[in-house]
């Protein structure tokens, strides 16, 4: 059994009075490529925010690299869903990716030559080297996503968290992003939130479907009728159990 990186025990999050995550127990181990699918408002992004330390759990405990969430910034890389930013912001692709080195820097410490070299490598990895001097505002959706992935990679994380990296991307670029993740999964653990239920099945090692009102089952075989549903999926499906006890599959949610 690989080392546990993210450990959520009975995690609940209440936002503005509504329960976004309810009694969720989930582990991410070293080498995992975990896909999280589920309906809008199902708590996928909230789960990522909890793991990143941006959102405090209302109940339950969460540890990331055996510490409280947010306490291991150097080991965690994050690719946000859409960058809320001003397209007129005067910053180049290279300087944007340089931000990925920030977590390894102390206050008052300036970026060094080796930081810039690492940035160039990350740009090379995602195939953005040719565009590194471009202003960020002129990039297409796919180019921006690859820039954000490069930014996360530049910090040499052990765990990569991606929130819908293919949401505003054309099909060709989508494929190239998944190919990139396929290469990356050999080096680091990945948690991917996505809507592409069909596509991710070929890439990820595990899928969970997340809906606040459902319980995620870590071990589907423990459920008596689970094996039947398991057969209809080519990949390892975690079954979901309504509070009432009736089984449902990810596609139904």
């Amino acid at each position: 059994m690989n080392r546990v990186i993210v450990d959520c025990e009975h995690l609940s999050v209440v936002l503005d009075g509504s329960r976004v995550l309810d009694n969720l127990t989930l582990q991410v181990c070293e080498g995992d490529f975990l896909g999280i699918v589920g309906p809008n408002g199902g708590g996928k992004t909230t789960l990522l925010r909890v793991i990143l330390g941006l959102q405090k759990p209302s109940e339950g405990t969460v540890t990331v690299f055996d510490k409280a969430p947010g306490q291991s910034p150097r080991r965690t890389g994050y690719v946000p869903q859409h960058l809320v930013f001003d397209r007129d912001f005067p910053i180049s692709v290279r300087d944007m990716v340089l931000m990925g080195r920030l977590s390894g820097k102390k206050p008052l410490q300036q970026y060094s030559k080796s930081d810039r070299e690492r940035v160039d490598e990350a740009l090379e990895t995602v195939g953005m080297s040719a565009l590194k001097s471009r202003r960020i505002g002129v990039l297409s959706g796919g180019e921006l996503q690859r820039t954000l992935i490069a930014r996360a990679l530049a910090g040499d994380p052990e765990l990569l968290l991606l929130d819908e990296p293919t949401a505003s991307v054309d099909p060709v670029m989508k494929t190239s992003i998944y190919d990139l993740l396929d290469r990356l999964k050999k080096q680091l653990s990945i948690v991917l939130v996505t809507h592409d239920i069909g596509t991710i099945s070929r890439h990820v090692s595990r899928v969970i479907c997340l809906n606040c009102s459902m319980v995620v089952r870590e071990n589907p075989l423990a459920t008596p009728s689970g094996s039947d549903i398991q057969k209809s999926y080519p990949y390892d499906v975690d079954l979901l159990l309504h509070h009432g006890g009736s089984l449902s599959s990810p596609e139904k949610s």
Partner: peptide
């Protein structure tokens, strides 16, 4: 440029 990422970076 990205306050949330800055927060995540510590």
């Amino acid at each position: 440029v990205d306050e949330e990422y800055a927060e995540v970076s510590g």
